[in-house]
């Protein structure tokens, strides 16, 4: 099988996000950027499938600024074979990302696309489902286990009530949840080797996709702040306060 893994360059998950004083956006100047954690899980899953012999080639693709090369190099260091960067400085909404990925799928004909269930910046949780829809493929979202069973792909999904397993025909799109695997750290020799792996540069126009934003961000604000309350001395004190002061017991 051939697997495509889309990865997104996002603010590092350890960075404390700050809203700009003019409320136009969050402040991304001089903050550490990393691969979206859910996408790291996707790369890891694809690489493990390759190591297990079910997959022959893993292609990483990113849509974003020139610097998104760093994230693609990381995917290559983790074990992806080659990478495609679709370079743009614009904000690309999930719908446009899905359209671009659909074009890449038409060109590359992967059997499987594995990607993060959501990006930790816009928290949209849409792109994988949209790509599956545009391709007319089935989807296994929020995956915590993926196995090939004959010509079908079995995906165990983390759903509100517990776990659900579905069988998908291939090609298909799988989106990863937290417990699918623990991504590896790339070793130094692999980081060096990744520098020599092929990385193709493209632009959205190469795929005939026009990037048009449908959502206009009018403002970005801080969420309402919660003030720290008081410390109580004992369990008895706590129960008394919950009963008589807060009135919730």
């Amino acid at each position: 099988m051939k697997v495509l893994v889309p990865v997104k360059r996002v603010i590092d998950y350890n960075v404390k996000v700050r809203v700009k004083p003019d409320q136009s956006d969050v402040d991304l100047a001089n903050v550490k950027m990393s691969m979206n954690p859910f996408d790291e899980i996707a790369v890891e899953e694809a690489v493990r499938m390759k190591e297990a012999g079910t997959v022959e080639e893993v292609i990483a693709v990113s849509i974003g600024p020139e610097k998104a090369q760093d994230q693609l190099r990381q995917a290559l260091a983790m074990g992806a074979d080659r990478a495609i960067l679709i370079e743009t400085t614009e904000t690309v909404e999930p719908l446009s990302v899905a359209k671009l990925l659909a074009k890449v799928c038409e060109e590359e004909n992967p059997d499987l696309v594995v990607m993060g269930k959501q990006a930790i910046d816009d928290d949209c949780n849409q792109t994988g489902q949209m790509l599956a829809a545009l391709m007319g493929w089935p989807q296994g979202t929020f995956a915590s286990a993926v196995t090939k069973e004959g010509d079908k792909l079995h995906v165990t999904r983390e759903v509100d009530g517990g776990l659900q397993t579905i069988a998908l025909t291939l090609p298909a799109v799988v989106t990863t949840d937290l417990r699918l695997n623990e991504p590896r750290y790339a070793s130094l020799p692999n980081i060096m080797k990744a520098k020599k792996k092929p990385l193709d540069k493209k632009s959205p126009s190469d795929y005939g996709v026009e990037i048009i934003a449908r959502l206009k961000t009018l403002k970005v604000t801080e969420p309402p702040k919660r003030e720290a309350g008081i410390k109580v001395e004992s369990v008895a004190d706590l129960v008394e306060k919950l009963k008589n002061e807060a009135g919730v017991l």
Binding site: V17, V26, K216, T221, E222, P223
Partner: peptide, 14 residues
């Protein structure tokens, strides 16, 4: 909410 609820975006759809 965006960024894990650390910011709230007001968005207008066209």
């Amino acid at each position: 909410p965006i960024y894990a609820g650390n910011a709230i975006a007001t968005v207008q759809s066209s």
